[in-house]
Amino acid sequence: MTAISPSRQVLTDCVRMATAAPSLHNSQPWLFRIGGPAVEVHADPSRRLPVLDPDGREQLISVGAAIFTLRLAIRGAGYRCRSATFPDREEPDLVARVFVAGPAAATPAVEALVAAVPHRHTNRFPFAHTPVPDDVLDHLADAARREGATLTVAPPASRESILRLAREADQWLRVRPGYRAELARWSGTGVRHDGVPMWAVGPWDALEAVPIRDFAESVPLPRPTEKFEPYPTLLVLSTDGDDRADWVLAGQALQRVLLTATWQNLSTTPISQPVEVPELRRQLTDPAGGRIAQMVLRVGHGKAVGVTPRRGLADVMLRRAEPAPAGPAVDAAPQPGQRAESRARVDRRYPGGRVQ
C-alpha cells in the first residue's frame, strides 16, 4: 500500500530516473536537492555551454526535460505532485520546486511513459525509408500540447528549408571561435559519465541532407559514411513566448514527446543547429501564429543503439536542505478512473493523459 508521504529513498529513486533526461551534448546540467516532501531542481552553471548556448536557453530546455522526468517518476511511484517554476528570485539557478502530495494510483498513461524512460536515447544513425503514420504524428503533437507547447510536422517544402537552415547553421557554428574546443570537451574516447561517446556519434550522411553534429571531429579517425533517409520526417517544437519559463516548458514538452515516440518504437534525433543561430532561428518562427521555435526533431524507424552514460547520484545531489515550504494546495484523492493496471494491459497506441 502506498504511504501518505514518500520516503526519502522513494524521492531519491525518482531523482535517479530524472537523470535519464536528454541534454545538450549530454552535459546533464542539473542538480537536485531533497527537502521534506519536495525536490528542488537546479541548473548547474558549471555545465552551461557558453559558446553554443550563451543565453542558457538550451540548458533550461535540458533542465525542463529533467523536471518532466522527475514529475513522471513521482507519479509512477504512486504520488501526485505539483511544480513551481523559478520559485525564489534570490536563487536564479533554482529552476523548479516539485512538491509531492498524497497517494494516487499510476494511470496506464503514466506507466507507459515510465516504461519508456530507460529506452529513450538519441539516434544519430540512418532511419528506414518507411514513413511515420499520421496517427502516430498526431499522438506526438498531442504530447506536446499536454505540456503547453506546439509540435508541427514540416511539410515537404518546409522540410527542405529547415534542412538547408540546419546545414547553414552547422557550417556557421563550425567556424565560430571556441566551438570546436567546446565540442571536444563533451566528446572523445576516454571513459566518462557524460558527453557523447564515439559509439553514439553516428556516420556522415552520404546524401549530405541530414546534418548530424560531428562529435568525432577531434578524433583522428575516419568517420564512416552511410545513406540517410532522403525525406526525413521533421518536427518543430515551439512555444508561445521566449523567456526562461518558456524554455523550461519547452524542455518538459520535449521530453514528453520523446518518451511518447519511444513508446511508439520510434527513433529520434534533435537537430538543434538551426535554433542555435539567432538569425536562422527567427526564420523558423511563425509570425502569424506567434509561435517561437525551440527545437527541431527528426523522427523515424531506426536500429537500436545504446544509451549514453549518466553521472551518479553523488554528482548531482546537493546537500540535504530543510523541508521546503508547503506547495500549492492539491486534492490528494485519485482522479476518477485512476486505478492500477498491469503493464500487459496498457494500450500501446498512445500513453495519453496528464502527468501531474
Rank of each mutant, 00 (worst) to 15 (best):
E217C: 15
S218K: 13
P220W: 07
L221I: 15
P222S: 11
P222V: 00
R223Q: 05
P224E: 07
T225S: 15
E226K: 14
K227M: 13
K227A: 15
K227Q: 15
E229G: 10
P230D: 14
Y231R: 15
P232M: 08
L234Q: 01
L234P: 03
V236T: 07
V236E: 04
L237S: 02
T239C: 00
G241D: 08
D242Y: 03
D243R: 13
D243M: 07
R244D: 11
A245V: 15
W247G: 01
A250F: 07
A250P: 03
A250G: 08
G251Q: 05
Q252D: 12
A253M: 02
L254I: 09
R256I: 08
V257T: 09
V257P: 01
L258I: 08
L259F: 10
T260I: 07
T260V: 12
T260D: 05
A261T: 03
W263A: 14
W263Y: 12
S267I: 00
T268R: 03
T268P: 15
T268M: 10
T269A: 10
T269N: 09
I271K: 11
I271M: 14
S272K: 02
S272F: 09
Q273L: 14
Q273T: 07
Q273D: 09
P274N: 07
V275T: 05
E276H: 00
E276P: 00
V277Y: 12
V277D: 05
E279C: 12
L280P: 05
Q283V: 13
Q283A: 12
Q283W: 06
L284I: 11
L284N: 10
T285P: 10
D286P: 14
P287Y: 04
P287C: 11
P287R: 02
P287G: 09
A288Y: 14
R291P: 02
I292A: 00
I292W: 06
A293I: 03
A293P: 02
Q294S: 01
M295A: 01
M295E: 05
L297Y: 01
L297R: 03
V299E: 02
G302F: 04
G302E: 06
G302M: 03
G302C: 08
A304L: 15
A304E: 11
A304C: 14
V305R: 10
V307S: 07
T308N: 09
P309W: 11
P309C: 05
G312I: 07
L313A: 02
A314K: 09
D315T: 01
D315F: 15
D315P: 01
V316M: 01
V316F: 00
L318P: 12
R320Y: 07
R320F: 12
A321I: 01
P323C: 07
P323I: 07
P325R: 01
P325C: 09
A326M: 15
G327C: 03
P328K: 05
A329C: 14
A329H: 14
